[in-house]
Measured scan of single mutants.
Amino acid sequence: LAALHAEGPLAGLPVTRSDARVLIFNEWEERKKSEPWLRLDMSDKAIFRRYPHLR
């Protein structure tokens, strides 16, 4: 499970980098069924690119 911001401008976004990794992994797991070539990237760089508020 990932903790998400409940309200405000960040509502629905992950609270920590660990939470972001959970979301990225879950999405990758779903997408790899139809796109088996996808690589999993959970590096800090990938997290910041996707969720800049975690910098």
Rank of each mutant, 00 (worst) to 15 (best):
29 E>M: 15
6 A>L: 14
40 L>K: 02
25 F>A: 07
10 L>P: 04
48 F>H: 07
17 R>M: 15
22 V>E: 06
10 L>M: 10
16 T>F: 04
27 E>C: 07
44 D>V: 08
18 S>L: 13
8 G>Y: 05
29 E>N: 15
35 E>P: 04
21 R>G: 04
14 P>C: 01
31 R>D: 03
32 K>E: 03
19 D>G: 06
48 F>T: 08
40 L>T: 02
33 K>E: 10
5 H>L: 05
14 P>F: 03
38 L>A: 14
41 D>Y: 06
50 R>V: 09
21 R>A: 09
10 L>C: 10
10 L>Q: 05
44 D>A: 09
2 A>E: 06
23 L>C: 07
1 L>I: 15
37 W>D: 11
29 E>S: 15
18 S>H: 15
53 H>P: 00
30 E>Y: 11
43 S>N: 03
19 D>P: 01
39 R>K: 14
24 I>P: 00
28 W>Q: 02
15 V>R: 12
8 G>E: 06
7 E>S: 14
13 L>D: 02
51 Y>R: 00
20 A>D: 00
50 R>S: 06
6 A>G: 12
36 P>M: 05
39 R>M: 14
14 P>I: 01
51 Y>H: 05
18 S>M: 14
48 F>S: 10
55 R>H: 08
53 H>Y: 08
29 E>W: 15
38 L>Y: 12
46 A>Q: 08
41 D>A: 03
4 L>S: 06
47 I>P: 00
41 D>V: 04
49 R>I: 13
35 E>I: 08
53 H>E: 00
33 K>I: 13
15 V>Q: 08
41 D>I: 06
33 K>T: 10
32 K>M: 08
3 A>K: 15
2 A>R: 04
31 R>Y: 04
12 G>Y: 06
14 P>G: 01
20 A>M: 01
50 R>M: 08
33 K>W: 10
51 Y>I: 00
37 W>G: 12
22 V>F: 10
22 V>M: 13
50 R>N: 07
30 E>S: 12
26 N>Y: 12
25 F>R: 11
7 E>P: 08
15 V>L: 10
16 T>V: 01
45 K>I: 10
13 L>A: 03
28 W>T: 01
9 P>Q: 07
54 L>S: 00
35 E>L: 08
37 W>K: 11
16 T>A: 07
42 M>I: 14
43 S>L: 03
39 R>E: 15
5 H>V: 05
17 R>S: 12
44 D>I: 11
3 A>Q: 15
37 W>Q: 11
21 R>C: 12
52 P>N: 02
10 L>K: 05
29 E>I: 15
45 K>H: 13
2 A>T: 07
32 K>C: 10
9 P>E: 11
18 S>C: 15
26 N>Q: 14
7 E>K: 10
41 D>K: 04
13 L>F: 07
49 R>L: 15
47 I>C: 02
15 V>I: 14
4 L>P: 03
2 A>H: 07
28 W>K: 00
11 A>S: 10
51 Y>A: 00
33 K>Y: 09
19 D>L: 03
42 M>V: 13
54 L>E: 00
9 P>W: 07
25 F>D: 01
51 Y>D: 00
18 S>F: 14
3 A>P: 04
48 F>G: 08
10 L>Y: 13
52 P>M: 02
12 G>D: 04
43 S>F: 02
50 R>W: 03
40 L>M: 05
28 W>Y: 11
3 A>C: 15
33 K>L: 12
5 H>Y: 13
5 H>P: 03
21 R>F: 05
51 Y>T: 00
14 P>T: 01
8 G>V: 05
51 Y>L: 06
8 G>N: 04
53 H>L: 01
4 L>Y: 07
11 A>M: 12
26 N>K: 15
34 S>F: 13
35 E>Q: 09
20 A>W: 01
7 E>D: 14
38 L>E: 07
5 H>D: 04
39 R>D: 09
53 H>Q: 01
50 R>P: 01
54 L>N: 00
6 A>E: 13
13 L>N: 03
4 L>V: 14
23 L>E: 02
24 I>L: 12
18 S>R: 15
45 K>P: 09
20 A>P: 00
39 R>I: 15
38 L>R: 09
4 L>T: 10
12 G>M: 06
35 E>C: 11
16 T>Q: 07
29 E>A: 14
30 E>M: 13
20 A>E: 01
17 R>E: 09
3 A>I: 14
31 R>K: 12
39 R>L: 12
35 E>G: 03
13 L>C: 08
42 M>E: 06
48 F>V: 11
54 L>F: 04
21 R>L: 11
15 V>F: 06
28 W>V: 02
50 R>E: 05
27 E>W: 06
25 F>Y: 15
6 A>F: 11
48 F>Y: 15
40 L>Q: 02
23 L>F: 05
52 P>L: 02
9 P>V: 09
54 L>P: 00
10 L>F: 14
22 V>S: 09
30 E>I: 13
40 L>D: 00
21 R>S: 06
32 K>W: 08
27 E>S: 06
45 K>N: 13
9 P>Y: 10
24 I>V: 07
14 P>M: 01
7 E>I: 10
49 R>T: 14
34 S>M: 13
6 A>M: 14
31 R>N: 08
